[in-house]
């Protein structure tokens, strides 16, 4: 495989391989999401509706994504490889796309655990929730991979990423929670798809400025 998408696949596979070898991020994310759900069990008084549980599920997903995203550029940072990556003859936006794909893979893997646990502990899961999860993940990871790159440039890396990401993801949460609880999830799913498309394009177009010196 050659060309742009070949580069993307190579870079993404590199990140996934590193993770499979080191197992730094995935177990932490899975453990985090399970602990959060346990906390939610105690945070929801008896008689709380399924809707409340669904809302909390989305907080769990958002925070787990955040946890994973703080590690997006950790492999490069720890081995000071980022400059090397930038010097390689790869389109900068391919780096962003690869990071997005890798983050998506991590998040999706953890969500399998999270949704199973949710189904077991709390409530029934409908198809609209699954669709919302898929669409919200794309938005979260696309924007997340960009702002995580911004955060690596800043002195307060881990501290600033949640601040950067949370206001940007309010629309995602609105779409996702709406799709999970409303009777007519269609327009919420459409909204999520629109968010993914718009922010995906902007992140793709602006990533090179974020990493360029």
């Amino acid at each position: 495989m050659n060309g742009y998408f070949g580069d993307v696949v190579t870079l993404a596979v590199k990140d996934l391989r590193l993770e499979l070898r080191a197992r730094d991020t995935l177990p932490a994310m899975a453990l985090f999401v399970l602990s959060t759900m346990t906390i939610f069990h105690f945070a929801l008084p008896s008689g709380s509706s399924d809707n409340a549980a669904l809302g909390l599920l989305w907080i769990a997903i958002l925070f787990t994504a955040l946890l994973g995203l703080t590690r997006t550029y950790a492999p490069e940072r720890e081995q000071s490889m980022f400059d090397g990556l930038l010097l390689s003859p790869v389109d900068r936006s391919a780096i962003w796309l690869a990071k997005t794909v890798a983050a998506l893979a991590f998040l999706a893997a953890v969500e399998v655990v999270a949704l199973l646990a949710f189904w077991l502990f709390f409530a029934h899961i409908g198809w609209s929730l699954l669709a919302a999860v898929a669409l919200a993940d794309i938005g979260l990871c696309a924007v997340g991979a960009l702002v995580a790159a911004m955060a690596t440039a800043s002195r307060s890396r881990e501290l600033i990423l949640p601040l950067l990401l949370l206001p940007l993801t309010i629309p995602v949460i609105v779409g996702a929670v709406g799709a999970s609880v409303a009777d007519d999830p269609g327009k919420y799913l459409a909204f999520l798809a629109m968010y993914d498309a718009i922010f995906g394009v902007i992140a793709w177009a602006t990533f090179e400025y974020v990493v360029a010196e």
Binding site: M150, A153, P171, V174, G178, F191
Partner: peptide, 30 residues
């Protein structure tokens, strides 16, 4: 680098305004 990152963030802002407006409209429903 700071100038570039600030600029990208500022651009995200103007896109976020209409998207958030729509989102808040939608959220009203539930």
């Amino acid at each position: 680098r700071r100038a570039n990152i600030s600029a990208v963030y500022a651009l995200f802002g103007v896109v976020l305004i209409p998207i958030s407006f729509l989102a808040i409209r939608l959220a009203e429903n539930y």
